[in-house]
Structures are given as structure tokens and as C-alpha cells.
Design a protein around this nucleic acid. Structure first.
Length: 119
DNA sequence: GGCATGACAAAGG
DNA sequence: CCCTTTGCCATGC
């Protein structure tokens, strides 16, 4: 049925959004999710958290040209995944001027981006 | 169709 | 701040 196609659509939107994140800025899974309407149309149970998870799923298969390193979790920290060194992501962000605090996270107040945000 | 797993998030200890 | 649990849903075997 169109379910898997819907998810593909969802993933496309995720990539499109992530491509819009400017250098030196980050976006959280949840904020990205909130920008994309749920596949089914309505959002009866507050699917924001759920969709945030879908964003994570989509990012797991993202195309090469997507700046995946600019996506962090709701705490401004790098989400871990098996076989991947978070130091790389942190490094890429630092090269763009993103500052990490003592506790290893990004200050979202300063670096978080959303479509509504202006550089 | 059941069961485990996951680049999430919020809440509680 | 770290760790665990709970909610939710797509995916793969």
C-alpha cells in the first residue's frame, strides 16, 4: 500500500529540510519532525516524538549530499549509533564554528536552526 | 502475525 | 548529569 511510499515521501522531506540547514547551525530530530506533516494526515496522538524517531530512521539511509552531521538530538548532543565515532560529527560541526559546551553538547539557544529562523 | 531493534524524546530516580 | 523506563511506530526476520 502507500504506507512505504508515504515513508519514502517523509524521508525525502527530511532530506530536503536537512539540506537547508546552514553551515554552522544544527537542527534536532524533533524540530525537523515538527516541520513535516504526518503521513496519515492528522496527528491525533501527538506524533511529534514518533516522527522524530522516523527522522532518525530516514537519516540512517541518507544520501551523500545531505549534511547529516548538522542533526543532533533534543539535548543538543550527538546521537550514538553502533560502529560510528561521534567524534567525527563533533569535528565536522566544530569546523563550521559550532561550539560544544563542557558537557559535550551544543547550545541550542545559539545554534539551533528551523525553517522559520533567519540566518 | 509475533518479536526484537532503532541516528528519538520526556519523565523519573 | 547519568541511567532506566515508557510511549510509539516502521522494519526485518
Amino acid at each position: 500500500m502507500a504506507r512505504s511510499r508515504s515513508m519514502t515521501e517523509f524521508a525525502r522531506k527530511v532530506y530536503a529540510l536537512v539540506r537547508r540547514i546552514p553551515r554552522g547551525r544544527v537542527a534536532t530530530y524533533g524540530s525537523l519532525a515538527s516541520q513535516i506533516p504526518p503521513p496519515g494526515g492528522v496527528d491525533p496522538f501527538g506524533y511529534e516524538r514518533v516522527r522524530a524517531r522516523w527522522v532518525g530512521d530516514a537519516m540512517a539511509h541518507c544520501p551523500e549530499d545531505v549534511p547529516w552531521h548538522r542533526v543532533v538530538n533534543s539535548q543538543g548532543r550527538i546521537s550514538t549509533r553502533p560502529g560510528f565515532n561521534p567524534a567525527l560529527q563533533r569535528h565536522l560541526l566544530q569546523l563550521e564554528g559550532v561550539v560544544f559546551t563542557e558537557d559535550g553538547g551544543v547550545d541550542l539557544e545559539r545554534f539551533a536552526w528551523s525553517p522559520a529562523t533567519r540566518r
